[in-house]
C-alpha cells in the first residue's frame, strides 16, 4: 500500500479544485443575467442617439463636423481596447489580443503610428509589455460599469482626434453572441461611418437651440461615449459567459481526473490485498 496514500491526497486536492471551479461557474452563470440586463437597458439610448444623428446628417450644416470627415492621409491610428479585469475566462482576452496584434502589425508595416486607450486590467498587463503608446487607461470597472468611469479616457482620444493627433479610431471588444459564443469585434468609431438609413421621405428640419453645429458636437461626443459604454457591457457579458464555459470544462476535467485516480487507487489497493493473501498462503504452506 505504498502509493495509495499519495493517491488519496491527490484525489482530495483535485476535489478541492473542483469545488472552486464549480463555485466560479455558478457565480458567473448568475452574473451573465445581470450583465445582459445592463446591455439591454442601455440600448434605447444608443438607438435614439443614432436616429437623431442620422437625422442631423441630412440637415444643412454650415460645415461638416470633423468627426464625420474622412481624412486623406492616415498617419496615426487609435484603438480603444476593452478587456476584462480578471482572468480565468478561457481564451477571451488572448483571442482579442491576437487579432489586435495582427492589425497592429499591418499598421506598423505601413508606417502608421499607434496609440491605445485601454480599459480593463488584463489589457494593461498585456500592453505594458508592448512598445505601443498608451494614452489613457481605466481599470477596475466592477460588475456595474458606469459611463462616468469611461468619460475621461474617451475625452483623451477625442481631443487627440480633434487636434489631429489621431486620424482614425477603432474600438475592440468581445461581442456577446450567446452564452457559448463570443466574437472579437473591432469596429471603427471615428470618422463616423456614414449611415445608410436614408428615410428622406419623412424629411423635416428641427428648430435648433442653440446652433446645429454646437448640438451636433455634443451629440457626437455622447454617441461615441455610449458606443464605448455599450462595448464595455458586451465585453462584461462575454467575460462571464466565457468564464462559465471555461470553469465548466475545468470542473468536467477535474471529475474525469478524479475517476481516473480512483481507478488507480482501487487497483493499488487490490494489488496489496492480493499480495497479502498470497503471502499468508505461502507462509501457511511453509509451515
Amino acid at each position: 500500500m505504498s502509493g495509495s496514500k499519495e493517491i488519496v491526497g491527490k484525489i482530495k486536492s483535485v476535489q478541492n479544485t473542483r469545488k472552486v471551479t464549480r463555485a466560479l461557474e455558478m457565480v458567473s452563470a448568475s452574473k451573465i443575467r445581470k450583465a445582459q440586463d445592463l446591455m439591454q437597458a442601455s440600448r434605447p439610448y444608443a438607438r435614439m442617439m443614432r436616429q437623431i444623428i442620422g437625422h442631423l446628417a441630412h440637415a444643412n450644416l454650415e460645415s461638416p463636423h470633423p468627426f464625420t470627415v474622412e481624412r486623406e492621409q492616415v498617419k496615426r491610428v487609435g484603438y480603444v481596447v476593452i478587456a476584462t479585469d480578471r482572468g480565468l475566462c478561457g481564451g477571451l482576452n488572448s483571442n482579442m489580443f491576437r487579432r489586435l496584434l495582427g492589425e497592429f502589425k499591418q499598421w506598423q508595416d505601413q508606417g502608421v503610428e499607434l496609440t491605445t486607450v485601454i480599459v480593463g486590467r488584463k489589457a494593461a498587463q498585456f500592453f505594458r509589455r508592448l512598445k505601443v503608446n498608451i494614452s489613457a487607461s481605466t481599470q477596475d470597472l466592477g460588475e456595474r460599469p458606469r459611463l462616468e468611469d469611461l468619460i475621461g479616457s474617451i475625452k483623451v482620444v477625442l481631443d487627440d482626434y480633434r487636434e489631429e493627433r489621431l486620424d482614425r479610431l477603432y474600438v475592440s471588444y468581445n461581442q456577446f453572441v450567446n452564452t457559448m459564443t463570443q466574437q472579437v469585434a473591432i469596429s471603427q468609431l471615428l470618422p463616423l461611418p456614414a449611415s445608410d438609413e436614408e428615410n428622406l421621405k419623412q424629411y423635416w428640419d428641427y428648430i435648433y437651440e442653440p446652433g446645429a453645429d454646437a448640438l451636433l458636437n455634443d451629440l457626437l461626443v455622447r454617441y461615441i461615449e455610449s458606443t464605448v459604454y455599450q462595448a464595455t457591457l458586451e465585453n462584461l457579458a462575454s467575460e462571464h459567459a466565457a468564464r462559465m464555459v471555461a470553469m465548466k470544462s475545468a470542473s468536467d476535467n477535474a471529475s474525469n481526473l478524479i475517476d481516473d485516480l480512483k481507478l488507480v487507487y482501487n487497483k493499488a489497493r487490490q494489488a496489496a490485498i492480493t499480495q497479502e493473501i498470497s503471502e499468508i498462503v505461502g507462509g501457511a504452506a511453509a509451515v
Partner: peptide, 26 residues
Amino acid sequence: AALKAKEEAERAIADRSAGMEVAQAQ
C-alpha cells in the same frame, strides 16, 4: 477625468519592464 485616465496610463507604462516589439509578442 481625462487627466486621471492619463495618469493611470502613465502608471501602467511606468512599471513596464522592457519594451517588446509587436512581432515578438505575437
